[in-house]
């Protein structure tokens, strides 16, 4: 596939990179506060209770803190959404970006289930990450299928 065929609009590059940086910042903060809960600045009364979520049994999956999984996701996502990665001629870079966004969204849905149904609390910062992930998915579903030749371009 030629370079021009992998092009996407500039707004998509700028938006996904910005969203990835936001997600990276939030997940970094959540990772820090996972290990230092006293550093968490968040209401702890009622339904919104960040500490109850970040220190819950569901804050680990297979022994790995969810915060670290989130941080790892956004480190990779930031790299894949960087302007340099968007310019990559390697098709797998663009496929990996799109697949990772879908996997991340599925994981976010599990976390929302855990917060609402199991823990009975929600965490504001986690919700910020969830919204960021959803926004990334929307942008990528708008541009990636056409970029990868899976759908007709909007301009065609």
């Amino acid at each position: 596939m030629s370079e021009s065929e992998l092009r996407v609009p500039h707004w998509a590059v700028a938006t996904t990179f910005t969203l990835s940086l936001i997600g990276l910042a939030l997940s970094t903060y959540l990772t820090i506060t996972h290990f230092e809960p006293q550093a968490l600045v968040c209401t702890d009364n009622g339904f919104i209770n960040c500490a109850a979520v970040t220190t819950s049994a569901q804050s680990h999956i297979l022994g790995i803190p969810v915060a670290i999984l989130g941080l790892g996701n956004y480190v990779v996502m930031t790299a894949l959404n960087s302007p340099w990665a968007w310019r990559s001629k390697h098709r797998w870079v663009h496929e990996a970006r799109f697949i990772l966004a879908i996997v991340a969204m599925c994981f976010v849905l599990w976390l929302i289930y855990a917060e609402l149904i199991i823990i009975n609390n929600i965490c504001l910062y986690c919700t910020g990450v969830h919204i960021t992930t959803f926004a990334l998915l929307i942008v990528l579903t708008l541009v990636s299928p056409a970029q990868l030749g899976w759908s007709r371009s909007r301009a065609s």
């Binding site: 056409a146 030749g149 899976w150 759908s151 007709r152 371009s153 909007r154 301009a155 065609s156």
Partner: peptide, 11 residues
């Protein structure tokens, strides 16, 4: 830009 066949954009 690639104007391939397949699903419509936005689907």
């Amino acid at each position: 830009a690639p104007a391939k066949g397949g699903r419509p954009a936005g689907l």
